[in-house]
């Protein structure tokens, strides 16, 4: 005889799964400081890596992993998880830090970044590290992967969302717009793209190298819902993302105004920190600045 499920039994079986989200903005801000400290230490110890672009997305990545994404660090392949793909793969120290801080692996592992034999490759490699959903690094491809993944989840009638962070310089790549066109065509409204609009790329200001503006109009013209936020303001990130999640008729893009190198005074808007590690004294100054915040 089949057991009869009572309402109470049903409730018990609906055991809450996944990471317990942090909703306190002040606590999220403190987490972002931890993430920044990790990023700087990782890149300092690695002797190479992309500081500026990792720091500019540190607040967004913190908000994603601690507040927005449904995920389970103890079960990285949990079917119902939301997916996050870092299309601007060079900023992966920010993602590694968030994965460690939410418990995917020990923080000690962070200090192996870019070292021979480490799972923490210079750019994300999904086959090396649980928690990485796609291998990226060649710009323009992560967003296409995200469109394919979102399409697949939608076909399964899954409730999972796909988030991806695209660099503003990356928007110069044609594939971003091929992907944008496909996302709108197949109406993958379970996809949210966040553009890290920090205004700088390796060779200088995006608008001097190859202007991407008017960015908002471009995405709109490609059939996307466009929202703006201050990508370095925790309250704004949480509020805007939550609004976007509740209104999803089309694929959504959030253009996040950020500051490259955000959080460390001498790295902010300083293009020379795009791809170089801090010196020993810069490292000490940076860690001190972060300590002063707390």
């Amino acid at each position: 005889m089949k057991p009869v499920l009572t309402e109470l039994d049903g409730d018990i079986s609906l055991e809450k799964k996944g990471f317990e989200k942090i909703c306190d903005i002040e606590l999220l801000k403190r987490k972002a400081v931890d993430i920044r400290r990790d990023i700087i230490k990782m890149i300092y110890l690695a002797g190479s890596g992309h500081l500026g672009g990792s720091l500019s997305i540190a607040d967004i990545v913190t908000a994603l992993y601690f507040n927005i994404l449904n995920h389970d660090p103890s079960d990285p392949l949990w079917v119902e998880r939301d997916r996050f793909i870092l299309s601007k793969g060079h900023a992966v120290p920010a993602q590694y830090a968030a994965l460690a801080e939410t418990g995917y692996f020990s923080k000690e592992k962070l200090w192996t970044l870019r070292k021979l034999g480490s799972d923490l490759q210079g750019h994300p490699a999904m086959h090396k590290l649980a928690g990485i959903e796609a291998s990226t690094g060649s710009l323009g491809q992560g967003i296409s992967i995200a469109v394919g993944l979102a399409l697949s989840l939608k076909m399964r009638k899954s409730n999972s969302m796909v988030f991806t962070i695209v660099g503003d310089g990356e928007c110069q790549s044609g594939e971003v717009w091929e992907a944008a066109m496909a996302a709108a065509h197949y109406n993958v409204n379970n996809l949210i793209v966040i553009v890290d609009r920090n205004g700088l790329q390796i060779d200088g200001e995006t608008e001097k190298i190859m202007s991407v503006e008017p960015l908002s109009e471009k995405w709109k013209a490609f059939g996307w819902d466009v929202t703006h936020m201050n990508g370095n303001n925790m309250e704004d990130i949480v509020k805007t993302t939550s609004n976007v999640l509740q209104n999803r008729e089309k694929p959504s893009v959030i253009i996040a105004k950020t500051i490259k190198g955000k959080g460390i005074s001498f790295m902010e808007n300083n293009v020379s920190f795009h791809g170089k590690p801090p010196t020993a004294s810069e490292y000490e100054r940076a860690i001190k600045e972060l300590g002063d915040i707390l």
Partner: peptide
């Protein structure tokens, strides 16, 4: 799924579909 005349996006979208 027809990707239109956009082979680069098609290949990476295929990667995304296969990840699932």
């Amino acid at each position: 799924f027809n990707a239109g005349i956009a082979e680069q996006n098609m290949m990476a979208m295929a990667a995304g579909l296969s990840i699932d």
